[in-house]
Simulated scan of single mutants.
Amino acid sequence: MQCYHPANRHDRNATWSADNPECRWRAYDYEERINRDKASPDIFWLKDDSLSDMDNLPAPEVSAAEIVDDLEAALGQFRLIAAEAEALR
């Protein structure tokens, strides 16, 4: 939030550099953006190292079980929200 400077965008300073590639605050100039494939606004420079190590991925059934757990938890949250909304009627 300190880097963002919501009150004055001209005070923003990038923290990313070639020497410091792990930092998240990066500024792009117009030429750099327009020269992207199809001038895509998708800007991605952070890399998830866990996704690049294909030998250490969990078994498909483990991933599927985690997805099911996440979806069931989300469904439970939506049920709570729906119940609270109904109670407010």
Rank of each mutant, 00 (worst) to 15 (best):
T15E: 07
A39V: 06
R26V: 02
A59S: 07
S50C: 04
Q2W: 10
E66S: 00
D69Y: 03
D70Y: 12
P58S: 06
R24V: 04
E72N: 11
D11I: 04
S17R: 02
E32Q: 01
A73C: 00
C3R: 13
P60K: 07
L46G: 10
H10W: 12
N35E: 06
I81G: 08
P41W: 01
S40I: 03
A65D: 08
P6V: 00
D55A: 12
R89T: 04
L88H: 06
L57S: 09
A82F: 06
S52W: 03
M1L: 09
D48L: 12
S17N: 07
A27C: 15
P6I: 00
I34A: 12
K38H: 13
A39M: 14
A83G: 05
R9D: 14
A85R: 10
Q77H: 13
C3G: 11
E84V: 02
L88D: 06
G76I: 05
C3E: 12
Y4D: 04
N8M: 02
L88N: 09
M54D: 13
Y4N: 01
H5T: 15
D29A: 08
E86I: 07
E22R: 15
A74R: 15
P41D: 05
L71A: 07
P21E: 01
Y4K: 06
P6E: 04
S52L: 14
E84C: 04
Q77T: 13
S17G: 01
D37G: 10
S40Y: 01
H10S: 05
D29G: 03
W16G: 04
Y4I: 13
A64Y: 15
W16Y: 01
L88A: 08
R36F: 14
L75W: 10
E66F: 06
P41I: 03
L80N: 11
L75H: 02
E61Y: 13
D69P: 02
E31Q: 08
E61K: 03
E84H: 07
W45V: 09
E22V: 02
D53A: 03
H5R: 14
L80V: 14
E22P: 07
N56A: 08
R36D: 07
A83H: 04
D48V: 08
R36H: 06
E32A: 05
S52R: 12
L51N: 02
R12G: 02
A73W: 08
